[in-house]
Design a protein around this nucleic acid. Structure first.
Lengths: 197, 197
DNA sequence: CCTACCGATCGGTAGG
DNA sequence: CCTACCGATCGGTAGG
């Protein structure tokens, strides 16, 4: 789950993983290094043998996630699918990331404002660029008459935020399974609620 | 904006308003009472002549917002509109709240986890109940064949989170106006992206 | 990886 | 509404 490479999870990986879980539950600012150390099973001072600072942990989480999405976007842009298909593929990728790795994805989504410069501005730039590329795909679809003539940035805003709401699905007791969730979300976002006869 | 009653904004109102702005920008935990005092224009100790604690401020913000939404829901449930119309009315209410009073609405949405019991559990109960009532409207629409047969809780999740994303619209430079935003969101959420011929 | 400890800052109070 | 101050806790370091 944490690393899909051959080598086993290092202590640093464990720290990042536990940190993502705690930052998600309590928020970055409200999580102390002593809280984190306890969940890892060592003393607070010992954390600093693996990481340089509390902020470095947040940087690692945010950029890991951001790079994963950027890489996926590059692959998608190279494909020959129709625009609406590209949107659906993107949607499913986001949903699956949020279902499977929700802790780090959620932290990257919600806690990035606690980054410090230059990381903060780098992250914001990367994020803005990603959204523009997403919007460009939608605009392409509008030109090709595959997609309704709506404001592309508003559509991106809706989709990205709707997906980050999957966090609350993880919290709920009576939850439908991940595959059903994915299919329902795709239907609602691409075809809407209203029943057309 | 803050109070639409006859009396002018009290110092406490000003504190709540400034607090909402700061909690939104920096988060509840990362905002210190000294930060807040400075933005109000008094010393930190003087805040305590108007409020009892930092947490009391958050409670006031969260329950103000929650009660406003609950009241609106009661009016809506009493109406004779069709289900899909009810959903649209609800959507427009949420969007307008988020466009006009985004600071407190956003804080109520994102920072409630810093509430302490018994406020925390009261808030969660009220929130859960609201979502159930929203889902019930959608389910009613499905039965009446006005709405596609989708999972109602997933639809609620999408709509509420999409709307809370309006926060990022406030941040963006080249933004379409509020009315356009509202109409675009309603179209995308009720009719979807795909162009149907 | 631990013990011991640092300066800074936190939310909040006393007393006027 | 302010000055002065409190105990607690924070992120982080020294030294072993």
């Amino acid at each position: 789950m944490v690393k899909n490479q051959r080598r086993k999870a290092s202590k640093k990986d464990i720290i990042l993983q536990k940190a993502a879980a705690m930052f998600r539950e309590k928020g970055f600012a409200a999580t102390s290094m002593r809280d984190l150390a306890e969940s890892v099973g060592i003393e607070a001072a010992s954390l600093y043998n693996h990481i340089r600072s509390k902020n470095e942990i947040l940087e690692a989480i945010c950029f890991n996630v951001a790079n994963r999405f950027t890489t996926n976007m590059e692959g998608l842009e190279a494909s020959r699918d129709s625009s609406i298909q590209k949107v659906e593929t993107l949607l499913r990728f986001h949903i699956r990331q949020m279902v499977d790795n929700y802790e780090e994805v959620y932290v990257s989504d919600r806690e990035w404002k606690h980054l410090e410069d230059p990381y903060l501005s780098n992250f914001q730039t990367q994020r803005r660029s990603y959204r523009k590329r997403f919007a460009a795909i939608i605009e392409e679809g509008i030109e090709k008459k595959e997609i309704k003539s709506i404001d592309a940035s508003t559509a991106v805003l809706i989709m990205l935020h709707a997906i980050s709401g999957i966090e609350s699905w993880h919290r709920s007791k009576e939850k439908i399974n991940g595959e059903e969730l994915e299919n329902n979300m795709v239907v609602i976002l691409t075809d809407g609620l209203r029943k057309t006869v």
